[in-house]
Amino acid sequence: MNPYPVTPIQIISIIVSFLLLAIIILLIRRKKIREEYAILWVIIFFVFILLSIFRGLIDIISSFLGIQYQPASIFLILIGSLFLLMLHFSIVISDMKKKINTLAMTIAILEAKVPPKKK
């Protein structure tokens, strides 16, 4: 006998997870997100899909971590994922700021070296 009878919330979870994954893939195809920034999203939605299909996974993870209240494991995974994403964004933003500054400096120096136009 299946210890995890299918419930409406499970079906909703599966559908929503697939939908979100589909949105990410669509955005990549339309060049709205670059692949390098979407990898983390794709991985996270894969994890969500796995967790919503195989409900036993949460029990396994909970008992492995020593968590009594299984939903806490879901929140832990969710918060962990969001944390990773935000950290990733911070790294990307810092990198971009560095590049913008280098660009601005290069242009400013070049501009100063070009002789002024005679009007």
Binding site: A104, M105, A108, A112
Partner: peptide, 9 residues
């Protein structure tokens, strides 16, 4: 010599 930065850095 003057260098004008395009924005406040």
């Amino acid at each position: 010599k003057v260098i004008h930065l395009p924005f406040n850095m």
